[in-house]
């Protein structure tokens, strides 16, 4: 079970969090300008790397804040978590 560093509350057990999928997928500013393929890309397509993955979490049972985290999917090593709008930690891309 992961020990997740909430950028606000500190390290807490994984059971307090909810996983929110891949991070840094921005909602298109003008959806109508997108082709069906491009819209489908935004809706459905996600990378699934073996290695460092930037992902979203929400501290559901704690401060209710969303944040991003860099985690190695092969080892579960956590390179760091960072607030929405901040840059990923060094070493994660």
């Amino acid at each position: 079970m992961l020990l997740i560093p909430c950028p606000f509350c500190g390290k807490r057990e994984e059971t307090e969090f909810h996983h929110g999928g891949e991070a840094h997928i921005e909602r298109p500013k003008d959806p109508d300008a997108l082709s069906d393929e491009a819209w489908a890309e935004y809706l459905f397509m996600r990378t699934n790397p073996k290695g460092v993955f930037l992902e979203r979490w929400v501290h559901l049972a704690g401060c209710r804040r969303w944040f991003n985290m860099a985690r190695n999917t092969a080892t579960n090593e956590i390179l760091g978590s960072y607030k929405i709008g901040e840059k990923p930690p060094k070493g994660a891309r």
Partner: peptide
């Protein structure tokens, strides 16, 4: 004393 957490 004075510590507060939201938790389960």
């Amino acid at each position: 004393p004075g510590r507060v957490v939201n938790t389960v």
